[in-house]
Simulated scan of single mutants.
Amino acid sequence: MFKGLGGLGDMSKMMKAAKEMQDRMQQLQDDMEKLTVTGESGAGLVKATATAKGELTGLDIDPSIFQPTEKEVVEDLILAAIKDAQRRAQDKMQSEMSRITQELGLPADMKMPF
């Protein structure tokens, strides 16, 4: 179609690839809002659920840990579970970003804008 127009054919390919990457990244962002990960602490006594984007969506606490004298322990377990969920969310996001960059033929260590 662009034969004989010099570098315009290459420019068209680049624009098409850029649009494809933009569409894939938007789809990834949408998927990460729906995908959830669960972090836990205290051998599963406290579980925190978050989206793969890191937004906390749920907290499950085993009632056996509710002892008035153990308040600080419970608080520590809750924080640890939330941090674990956030770490898992970040790992999942990085894994998905890496997969997409490889599918698009981009360098695996290329940093995306989010």
Rank of each mutant, 00 (worst) to 15 (best):
Q94D: 15
M11E: 13
D91L: 10
G58I: 04
R87Y: 09
K111R: 07
P63K: 06
G54Y: 01
M14K: 00
E96N: 05
G105N: 01
I78H: 06
Q102H: 13
L35E: 14
L35K: 08
S98K: 15
I65Y: 02
M1Y: 12
T69Q: 15
E96L: 11
G58L: 01
T57N: 14
V73R: 13
S41L: 06
D76E: 14
E40N: 13
E96F: 06
L28D: 00
Q22S: 07
K53W: 05
I65C: 12
A18N: 00
V74C: 07
M21Y: 06
G54F: 04
E40Y: 08
A17D: 00
L35S: 11
I82Y: 02
M112H: 00
S98D: 15
M93C: 09
D62P: 06
Q67W: 10
K16W: 03
M21H: 09
Q90R: 14
M112L: 09
T51L: 04
A48R: 03
I61G: 08
M11C: 03
L8R: 15
Q29D: 09
I78W: 04
V37A: 03
S12T: 15
T49S: 01
A43W: 07
P63N: 02
E40P: 08
T49A: 01
R88I: 08
K47V: 04
M110H: 12
Q29S: 11
K16I: 06
K34M: 06
F114T: 08
Q86G: 10
E70G: 04
D84S: 03
A50Y: 04
E70D: 12
L8G: 07
A85S: 06
K3D: 14
K83M: 15
M112W: 09
A80V: 08
V74H: 02
V74W: 05
Q29H: 10
M14R: 03
K83S: 12
A81V: 10
V73G: 12
I65D: 12
D76N: 14
L77P: 02
D31Q: 13
M11K: 11
E20L: 06
G44E: 06
A17E: 14
G58E: 02
L8N: 13
